[in-house]
Design a protein around this nucleic acid. Structure first.
Lengths: 155, 155
DNA sequence: GACTTGCTTTACGTTAACGTCAAGCATGGC
DNA sequence: GCCATGCTTGACGTTAACGTAAAGCAAGTC
């Protein structure tokens, strides 16, 4: 009963927690992340320039925590759904901690997340429309094909 | 029973038909389309440069049919879901007619639409993941707020 | 201590998707 | 005939998201 739905929820909570986590434990070099996610170092540094990441430094070299890694994953997912880095930056801010602020700020945070949710639902709705149309097309082409088959069989 | 679902299907079939329609009937100037969709003439001409539109000309001026208008709508929906104009061009090709080709071409067309469908489903899945996370965040913030309310009431 | 390997910054190049003039034709009003 | 309006085609500018050298530090190897 609702096991799949619940799995999704658990996974979502875990990921949000990993983004809000304090940066300790396992550490990564830039090459590690690039290998893991199949992206270029240039891209990772670019995201940092844009304020999406802020790894620590050891001898000038960038050191990433699990939290940074989670942030990078969010960036890539954002790109996968067609968001700009500017929009993704907003997402990252939403994923930040909201425990310290006062009521005013909490309300503001809720409005922002609400906005983001509505926008994404809207985008998904548009995808659904296109998907429905593509399925119509696909079915139509398939009917065409089946007709050919039949007229051949009738020979 | 399934009325909403059926409405979607009908609407999808109607739109696909309007894209495949022959260009006659009602005609539009570029300003009409810009007003209707809230975009700039420059953008419309740009889409034409990229091969996404090909309106007829009268005295050099562009004349758009219902079919062109439907194509433009598809372009804008494509943009709304974060697709590039190059990807949208692929969509437009998929929406084109598939009645004339031979079996080989029909099969190829089906593969392409199948690909596009899978990609969009993938994108939608990613959106769902982010949506789930945003809802987790939203709920968390709301709990924080309710706690404040309660501790105030206890005074 | 020279060399390789892996990181760094700086800077210039590139593609996409337009915005923004500038200059010219075509049509309708007066 | 003149002028405003609305269209047209260049051509150059701009922002985003990197790619692509070029040149230099830092650590480990032999």
């Amino acid at each position: 009963m609702g096991t799949k739905k619940n799995d999704e929820l658990v996974r979502a909570e875990a990921f949000v927690a990993s983004v809000q986590q304090v940066g300790d434990g396992e550490l990564f070099g830039i090459a590690d992340l690039c290998r893991e996610f199949g992206i270029s170092p240039r891209a990772v540094r670019f995201y940092e320039d844009k304020g999406l990441l802020s790894p620590r430094r050891v001898n000038g070299a960038r050191i990433y925590t699990r939290r940074d890694r989670a942030r990078l994953l969010l960036i890539l997912r954002g790109k996968a759904i067609g968001s700009s880095l500017a929009e993704i930056k907003h997402y990252l801010e939403l994923y930040g901690q909201h425990g310290e602020g006062r009521a005013q700020q909490l309300k503001y945070a809720m409005e922002r997340t609400g906005e983001a949710i509505r926008e994404l639902e809207d985008r998904r709705a548009n995808i659904d429309v296109i998907l429905a149309e593509l399925r119509v097309i696909n079915a139509s082409v398939q009917r065409q094909l089946e007709q050919r088959q039949r007229s051949r069989t009738e020979d």
